[in-house]
Amino acid sequence: MRQLFNALINYKNTLIFIGLLALSLVFLNSRSFYHQSIFSNATLSFSSQFNLITHNISSYINLAESNKKLHLENEKLKALELFKFAKPLHQNTLLDSFGFEVRSARIVKNSYRGARNYLIIDKGYKDSIEVEMGVITSDGVVGIVNQVTADFSSILSVLHRDLKINARFKKNGAYGSLSWQGNHPKRMKLLDVSTLNPIAIGDTIVTGGMSYYFPYGIPIGTVLDFKKPDFEGYYDIDVELFSNLTQKEFVYILRNNQLNQLKQLNNE
């Protein structure tokens, strides 16, 4: 014990230096946005490597289950392909005028217990993933890419209290903004829908197509319950999502090819 104290006293300058250095790094991190992003990028690429290992193990165990899901999705896609074969004339023009490209990726880490949740996927800027791309799954919306390293990207989940997504009713096009309240991973709130529009329980909600991230018409969920406040002109709608974000394995990243044009117009 005494030797330990002696050693501590001998190295007290170095210890104090390291302690204060850590303190000043925290100070640097909290004051400068640039340094903050560098630090979080470094820690993201480090922790992703680690998560990948643990995820590889667990995904091997769930292989049969995810195989089944892939089969189901393949069936759906096959049907679509056959449908397209049926009208070969319009095939190319349809794909070209559609402004989004699709890339697939695997989820490495998925959080859904916090109030602000993130996902990490195994594609980065090497696979031409960029920030602000929309992310979907086979049956709904997942989130928006917010940080990219060489091999990984982190995604702001729709289960994030500060994220709002433009959504509208499939039947009449009434639109509002969809946000998560932070309690149940399948429930979200649709706000800012004007009471001029008639709505009913069970109506389908789809993406609104008014943002850079998602095209129009991706199904999100159905109306579970709604309230019509007495003095406000907007509904308060509870939405139940189609997709269960707590058991996802693969996601699709949407690249908006017309993003530059949209941004240019918005800036002018």
């Binding site: 300058n13 104090i16 230096f17 204060l20 250095l21 303190l23 000043s24 790094l25 100070f27 640097l28 004051r31 400068s32 640039y34 340094h35």
Partner: peptide, 27 residues
């Protein structure tokens, strides 16, 4: 060491610096 840290910290606070003076002066 402690005075160097404080000197850099106060300077960064007064000049709205990001924290470079703190680390450099401490080191």
């Amino acid at each position: 060491i402690i005075l160097g840290f404080l000197l850099g910290l106060f300077l960064d606070l007064l000049t709205q610096g990001s924290g470079g003076h703190t680390i450099a002066t401490l080191t």
